[in-house]
Write a protein that binds this DNA or RNA. Structure first.
Length: 550
RNA sequence: GGCCCAUUGGUCAAGCGGUUAAGACACCGCCCUUUCACGGCGGUAACGGGAGUUCGAUUCUCCCAUGGGUCACCA
């Protein structure tokens, strides 16, 4: 048969058959209902939060079903490849608690029995299948130059015809085999295209997230092997996911429109087709309209942003889970002590439209989670973050080990813990007054609305005289402060004050406010008693003096 | 432009033919309180538009509008 000859000329080095690879990668033996999923990024740059989102979904689905989750590197476009991106992908995923059962483990190594897990190393496999397609007349070499294609496209658009290489516009689709061979032997460059059946039928399809949908069958003679011998995404996807026995492909919804191509490819290659879940794109508000999170414009699209800001990884994950299934919050409320790993992710409960990434909501989720951590967890996580993002604070935090832990412990053991921090970058401005290094440099002094600076100084001048550092409890200290407040004409009881405001200079909170401002320059800090204990008696008195004389 | 997907308050979203249309975040107010917080209670605020189907549509169908995606030898 002449197609046979063509196939042998094009892929003269390919001596295997599709059966060889099909037999080489038998189906895994897995428990009933186990899903095999994957994360398949191309190593083209920094990690996108959408990537973590997609990987998280796939990983959860596999883990929850006792299946397999693997990493495949889609590096068929060698021009766009960025050195180091593979390792960066792996370490980012690991950092976010996303581990792979199989797949690429470094630039050149992988684990698992279905490898290689890097497409550039699977060239022989793709070519074997492509050769088989040519042999069957289901694919053909195309000699059209990029310029020619461009011209065709422009003309089609001008004529208001669907652009593309298909049907009557596919110039080399029906080129006689001997002429094709002639061109090849002459040395003309070419690529391999699928000879689409061009079926007039509509295809009905069920997506696990989007539900029922239908579209016209593919009619494009898409490129399957590029001039460099590597496959296009479409061809590689179909072969890899079949050979790797992926049961469920979860990927961004931008792939939905090329699904007809993939479906035809599965059919032509006679390979088993997986289930699909097309994940909505994470969007962002831009003025009045939504748009995709952009690498260019949005710093928060990069995973490194969350690290730089100091969001604990668990907080980011829990927020993302919130976007995956909106009943996550309810579940979390009912299962406070469980790990997010126990949450039953359900693809059919996922929103069909793109969610807006809401940093404010992230902050809330994060604050809540941090508030439930122990003082040691908070301290250690902060220290770890500061080590790589704020060395000065890291060293101070180390030096003030006990003090800082006490500070983080304020109200920790109560049923209603404080929610001071959403991310570690917020810690510094809220604690720097503990350190003279920063405190003395501050020029801004906040004041409670009902107290003037002079009034505050007056209060402190008096308080300094009676200040006792050695109170054994917060309660004792505050009682003392109340007595003091009364002695200088401030009311210590709110109700009485309201009855007759004229009788008093102010209220107890004005006095406490003055003390707070003198010690911290802030009107908003955690419990003063603990802060004073951390500062120590001499520093407290010194700050009182500095405040009065300033 | 063709094809596909989507459309409930500012945001995330429940709802799947009959509801006073949940809840969370944000915002506002009140309360609690020994300072700061936390917390509690309450409030403002929504079914894109138009035709059908139906006794009855946020829910079903169609059309339109809007938003998004996609139409590469990129993934």
């Amino acid at each position: 048969m002449s197609y046979e000859k063509l196939a042998n000329i094009i892929f003269k080095d390919i001596d295997k058959t599709p059966e060889y690879f099909i037999n080489k990668y038998p189906k895994r033996t897995l428990p009933e209902g186990a899903e095999v999923t994957r994360y398949a990024p191309s190593p083209t740059g920094f990690q996108h939060i959408g990537g973590v989102f997609a990987a998280l979904v796939a990983q959860r689905v596999a883990a929850l079903s006792n299946g397999i989750f693997f990493l495949r590197i889609e590096d068929t476009d060698q021009k766009r490849e960025v050195p180091g991106a593979i390792l960066d992908t792996i370490s980012t995923m690991n950092k976010y608690g996303i581990d792979f059962n199989e797949g690429q483990t470094s630039d050149h190594d992988y684990k698992g029995n279905y490898g290689p897990y890097k497409q550039s190393e699977r060239k022989e496999i793709y070519q074997t299948f492509a050769k088989d397609l040519i042999r069957q007349g289901k694919a053909y070499p195309c000699f059209a130059t990029p310029e020619e294609l461009e011209e065709l496209r422009n003309w089609q658009i001008e004529q208001k015809i669907t652009p593309g290489y298909y049907g009557q516009y596919a110039k080399f689709r029906d080129l006689p085999v001997d002429q094709a061979i002639e061109k090849i032997e002459f040395g003309l460059p070419y690529i391999i295209r699928l000879k689409s059946s061009n079926s007039p039928e509509r295809i009905h399809f069920t997506d696990l997230i989007k539900g029922e949908t239908s579209f016209p069958a593919n009619n494009q003679d898409v490129v399957i092997i590029k001039q460099d011998g590597l496959p296009t995404y479409h061809f590689a996807h179909v072969i890899d996911d079949a050979l790797m026995h992926t049961t469920l492909v979860s990927r961004g919804e931008e792939w939905l429109s090329s699904l007809p191509i993939h479906l035809e490819l599965f059919e032509k290659l006679q390979l088993p087709q997986p289930k699909y879940a097309h994940i909505p794109t994470i969007m962002k508000m831009d003025g009045k309209s939504k748009r995709k999170l952009s690498k260019r414009k949005d710093p928060e699209s990069a995973v490194t942003y969350y690290d730089d800001e100091g969001y604990p990884v668990d907080c980011v994950i829990e927020y993302l889970l919130n976007l995956v299934n909106s009943n996550y919050e309810t579940w979390r409320e009912e299962n406070k002590d469980k790990s997010y790993l126990d949450f039953p992710v359900a693809l059919n409960k996922m929103s069909k439209s793109g969610a807006l990434f809401d940093i404010i909501k992230l902050d809330d989720v994060s604050r809540d989670i941090i508030s439930r951590m122990t003082k040691d967890q908070v301290y250690n996580l902060y220290l770890e973050w500061a080590k790589s993002h704020d060395l000065e604070m890291h060293n101070l935090a180390l030096a003030k080990f006990e003090g800082l832990r006490e500070f983080f412990n304020i109200d920790k053991d109560t049923p209603k813990p404080r929610k001071d921090f959403a991310k570690w970058i917020e810690v510094k401005p809220k604690i720097v007054y503990l350190f003279n290094e920063f405190f003395d440099e501050e020029s801004d002094i906040e004041l409670p609305k009902s107290v003037s600076l002079d009034q505050a100084k007056e209060i402190i001048a008096e308080y300094k005289k009676v200040y006792v550092h050695s109170h054994s409890s917060q309660e004792e200290w505050f009682n003392h402060l109340k007595d003091f407040a009364a002695s200088i004409g401030y009311c210590s009881n709110k109700k009485e004050y309201k009855k007759d405001p004229e009788k008093y200079k102010g209220m107890i909170q004005d006095v406490a406010g003055a003390v707070r401002v003198a010690l911290t320059h802030r009107i908003n800090t955690p419990d003063l008693f603990v802060i004073m204990q951390i500062l120590g008696e001499s520093e407290v008195l010194s700050r009182f003096n500095r405040f009065i004389n300033n």
